Amino acid sequence: MPSTQKIGYFMACACCSSISVALLGFAMSQTWAESKLKCAGFETEFFNGTGLITWKLFKGNFIQYSCPLISSPKGKDFDVFTVLKESGAPVVLFAVVVLLLVLCLLSTALSILIALYNSVSNPYQTYMGPVGVYICSAISACLSAVVLILFAVTLTGTDAAESVVLNLAGDLSVRTQNRVAVFQLGYFLLLPYTALSLGSIGIIYFYDHAAYAQRREQQRPTEDAPKEIMMY
């Protein structure tokens, strides 16, 4: 394939992967979800208090509205891993989410390096070209999809939010109910990240298809030549 076309395809792939890795880095610094619960003490029947937890990957904030008796409109900042560990909540699930996101960053970064190297290498050869990009980008897309599922299960299917309330409310007799989780920007940014990872695969697929078609075109005159001519 001519060098200009090869450069164009691989540079487009590198740009697509660069946008995705920047997007993921930004997502990891944003709020991922909010959990809201109704609170009450054991001495009262009515759940007239509310606890609001803002989740980031490493830091969180807990706002009490009479939960059960104390209110703190400004909220309390807390370390997610420390509080979950102290509360006996499933801290392992949060650790797995962060680990998978780091692996996403590494695999996307490797995809960028492969694409950049091939954009300036021999114009008619590739080094880990299509296959390398396919593998790295597919890993990124698959792991980000797993993170979307795992994080949602962690907040909606475990008692992580209740554990934070019990730990930070300052009253072990507090009761909670009606937990609601609302996902925020950081979580939803994984969707375009996954799409861009798949887009990198698509770009290199078109390059690979075009290169294959050109190789077949170059071989055709020899294949179609009469046998008498080919003998010479």
Rank of each mutant, 00 (worst) to 15 (best):
M1Y: 08
P2Q: 12
K6C: 03
M11T: 10
A12G: 14
C15G: 13
S18A: 15
A27D: 09
M28V: 13
A33S: 13
E34M: 04
K36C: 00
C39H: 09
A40R: 15
E43A: 10
E45Q: 12
G49C: 06
L52Q: 14
W55G: 02
K56F: 08
F58A: 10
K59E: 15
G60Y: 06
I63R: 14
Y65D: 15
C67P: 00
P68A: 08
I70G: 00
S72Y: 00
P73W: 04
K74W: 02
D77F: 06
F78N: 07
L84N: 02
E86R: 11
L93Q: 09
F94C: 06
V96M: 09
V98M: 02
L99G: 08
L100N: 09
L100R: 04
C104N: 10
L105C: 10
L110N: 02
I112N: 05
S119W: 02
V120Y: 14
S121Q: 03
N122R: 10
Y124T: 03
T126C: 06
M128W: 13
G129P: 01
P130K: 09
G132L: 04
I135L: 15
C136Y: 03
S137I: 02
A141T: 14
A141Y: 07
L143E: 10
A145S: 09
V147I: 02
L148R: 07
F151Q: 06
V153K: 08
V153L: 07
A160E: 02
L166D: 01
N167C: 07
D171S: 05
D171T: 04
S173H: 11
S173R: 12
R175C: 07
R175M: 13
N178K: 05
R179M: 11
Q184I: 01
L185M: 07
L185N: 08
F188M: 11
F188E: 12
L189I: 10
T194C: 06
A195W: 08
S197A: 15
G202V: 00
I203S: 03
I204N: 14
I204R: 04
Y205K: 11
Y205P: 00
H209F: 14
A210P: 00
R216Q: 14
R216V: 06
P221W: 11
P221V: 13
E223W: 13
A225K: 14
P226Q: 01
P226A: 05
K227D: 12
E228L: 13
I229G: 01
M231L: 13
